[in-house]
Amino acid sequence: MTGLACRFGRHDHLIGVLSTPESHDDTALRPGVILLNAGLVHRIGPFRMTVELARLLAGRGYAAIRFDLSTIGDSGGTADAGSREDQVLADVQDAMAVLQQHAGCSHFVLMGLCSGAQNAHHVASIDPRVVGAVFMDGYAYRTRGFYLRHYLPRLLHPGRVARAAWRRLRRIGRRDDVDLPGFAVEWPSRQQVISELTGMAQQGRKLCFIFSGGALGYFNHPRQFGECFGSLAADPNVQVRTFPEADHTFILAGDRARLREAIADWMQQSF
């Protein structure tokens, strides 16, 4: 694996690190991987998960770039007109150009956690060079099944209800109840997401959905994918994996190792 730190982009405003396999023999034939920021964490990712993932993928023969989107981490802003979504699309296309220039890649797989998954979804729904995506704790919608699985066990165990109520009471006034700086992004409608995902799958894009225990507030069983997205669940281009023990940012090294292996295996099966 080799590493190249680069400054790039249409305004030379983006900072990233490209990891490439030692042998370039068939790297150009494989898709290049683009790893997106998770929230405001810079390009190394929460607990350095993006560094670990990029290096594993490079070791398996895939060129991978992890970089900071405009105004995040070390990347600068631009005076470009347009929405944040337009900016994200242009930034990712700049990263594609780097992968093309240095590794010869002409098609790409996007990977992202949380807001990174939302950005991956947006770009994958527009750019035809995207052949696959890994969405970690990305879009999903609560269903009747979700509510049943969430509330029924609690109703059947009054002790649990009492303990949950007690925990909630204890948390009142604690510092974690203080609003921290942050912005909530409104999710698109389920119908829009279904339509976009269906389009991606019909165009042959391979899609991997990963849900951690941190997503249990809106996704609590693999079956929910079908409840939520219908026939997409049976599409051979779609795979769903859950890591219910792990937290949202995979703080434990063992959880991260299992996540990395799952993604690398999916890459090898898919491309």
């Binding site: 680069c6 400054r7 030379d12 405003h13 990347s75 005076a79």
Partner: peptide, 20 residues
């Protein structure tokens, strides 16, 4: 204030170019 006014140059240096 951001990259428009200030250009930071990333690179690897040190033993076997191992430090960012």
């Amino acid at each position: 204030m951001s990259g428009e006014l200030l250009k930071e140059i990333p690179g690897y240096f040190g033993p076997q170019g191992s430090l960012f």
